[in-house]
Structures are given as C-alpha cells and as structure tokens.
C-alpha cells in the first residue's frame, strides 16, 4: 500500500509574528512495504506532516494519497504512533490495546486474542493487566507500538517514538521494531531528528530543510536488516546527511542571530597539554 504526498503546504498563524510557513510544497512517495524516514532539524514541520497524513490536521494546500485515492479523515489504515505514548490512564494495558480495535467489527474474543498476541510480540505478555503508570517509559511506548500494530494498519506513521526513552531501551526497540516489521511487512513513515536512528532503520531517507520544511535530499540505505545504530558501514551515509543538515543548522542560527554564523570545523589534532615540542 503506497503513500504519496503531493505539494503539501501549511502555515500557522501567530499574533505577534504573523503567518509562519511551516512546510512548503513537500512531495514524496513511499512504496509499499518500504520503511521511509523523514529526518530534519527541530521545528521543520516533521510532526506536522505526519499529523496531516494521519488526517488530524488539514493542510492549506496539497494532497495525501493512499494507493491513488486521496484521504482527508483519520482512519485505521493509517495509524500514528506519537512521541508520547498516549495511553488511557484509566485502562489496563490490555484494555488500551483492545480499545484501539473498538471501531472494528470483529468478535470481542477475537479482539482480545489479537491484542494479547501483539503485546506478547513486544514482550509485555506479563504486564497485560498493569495500569500505564506502573510501566516505564520504554514499556509504555511498546504498548503504543503493539496497539498500533494490532489495528493492522496498511501504513504506520511514527513520530519520534523513541526520543523519550533511554539509550539502552532505544537500541532494543530499534532491534525489535525491525524484527516485527520484517514479519508484518508494513509501509512505514518514521520521523526523527536523529540521523543515526534514521540511517539505522530506514530504506529510504528524506532530509528536510529548516523551517519552512522542504525535501532537501533523498537517500537510499541498502543495508540488510536488522541493523544496529553503531554499525560502521552506516557511518558514511550518516556523515553525508549530517553535512547537509549542518548547513541547515547554520542557516537557522544566522536567521536567529542575524550574523554570519559558521560552525567551527574540526582542526589539527592537539595534545591535551598543548605541548607541541617547545620543551625540547
């Protein structure tokens, strides 16, 4: 199930500044079964794009099409996983997972079986009767992932889902999500500000400019899954993207501070004591 975004533009209005264009004329395509990543500096409208695709925000211009038919409303074929694992605090883990299946017309028992099987897939089988506040941040995010997968969406939208969890948990979740997606073959659009994460997970990367967000460059990462963030063969691509993004960072800084701002490039290696042989 392919996803096609065409000429998307949106601007927000602020009383003190006036109109702020957030994304401008963004077009890209994600093919069926592909894992695509949008990577860009903070505030470039990445999350806004996901919200538009999910149908939660209306764009000023442009269209979102799933398999050549345009979509405007939220629907369970495009499920978004938010940055915060938005679990309902008065429901248990299992009830949370079942609740997302509420609009589906299948039997109650079947819903429960589906929910449990996906919770087991994210290793939470022992916690199905726990309340969200009893879980750690990483576990909550795993519930959110299980819940999203249980809805069996054609397209999975992920909005920096691992940005709030610690490194160890994140590495593990990266590994697990790659395993799960290999089994389920979903089309994924993943948004992150971390280049390492993007390169680690994605088959295709869209590098975004600073606000207003535009697609600056497109890369492919043809490495076998599952990968690890620290895999040395990813380093070259990571470096390439970080050079593109550094320029964007300079642009933002220039705009903010109104001066010529240049990131200090690494220079000559100097020993800590700065003793360059003067004591000979």
């Amino acid at each position: 199930m392919g996803l096609k975004v065409e000429n998307l533009s949106i601007s927000f209005w602020r009383k003190d500044v006036g109109k702020i264009p957030v994304i401008e004329d963004v077009s890209f395509e994600v093919k069926e079964g592909e894992f695509a990543c949008v990577v860009g500096p903070s505030g470039c409208g990445k999350s806004t794009i996901l919200n538009i695709i999910a149908g939660l925000i209306k764009p000023d211009k442009g269209t979102v099409c799933v398999n050549d038919s345009c979509v405007y409303e939220p629907s369970s074929d495009r499920v978004i996983i938010f940055q915060e694992p938005t679990l309902f605090p008065w429901m248990t883990v299992l009830e949370n997972a079942i609740f997302s299946l509420k609009a589906k017309s299948i039997k109650k028992k079947e819903k429960q079986d589906i929910a449990i099987s996906f919770l087991k897939k994210v290793h939470l089988g022992k916690f199905i009767n726990a309340f969200p506040h009893e879980l750690s941040a990483g576990m909550k995010q795993r519930v959110a992932i299980a819940r999203a997968l249980a809805m069996d969406p054609k397209i999975l939208l992920m909005d920096e889902p691992f940005s709030r969890v610690d490194d160890q948990t994140r590495f593990m979740l990266h590994y697990e999500i790659q395993q799960i997606l290999k089994e389920t073959r979903k089309t994924v659009l993943f948004v992150t500000s971390s280049i390492e994460e993007a390169v680690c997970l994605a088959d295709k990367l869209f590098v975004f400019s600073a606000r207003p967000g535009r697609v600056l460059a497109e890369y492919r990462a043809n490495f076998p899954h599952p990968r690890r963030e620290t895999d040395p063969q990813l380093g070259f691509l990571q470096d390439n993207i970080s050079i593109v993004l550094e320029k964007e960072f300079e642009k933002v800084a220039k705009e903010e501070m109104d001066i010529e701002y240049v990131l200090t490039k690494s220079g000559v290696l100097v020993p800590f004591d700065r003793n360059l042989g003067s004591n000979i």
């Binding site: 999910a54 939660l56 939220p74 938005t86 309902f88 609740f99 509420k102 609009a103 589906k104």
Partner: peptide
Amino acid sequence: QLINQARISGI
C-alpha cells in the same frame, strides 16, 4: 492527545 489517539482508532 487522548482525543487524537481515539480518533485515529476511528472512534
């Protein structure tokens, strides 16, 4: 956020 979460489940 909670309302959006429900909306994406078609509720």
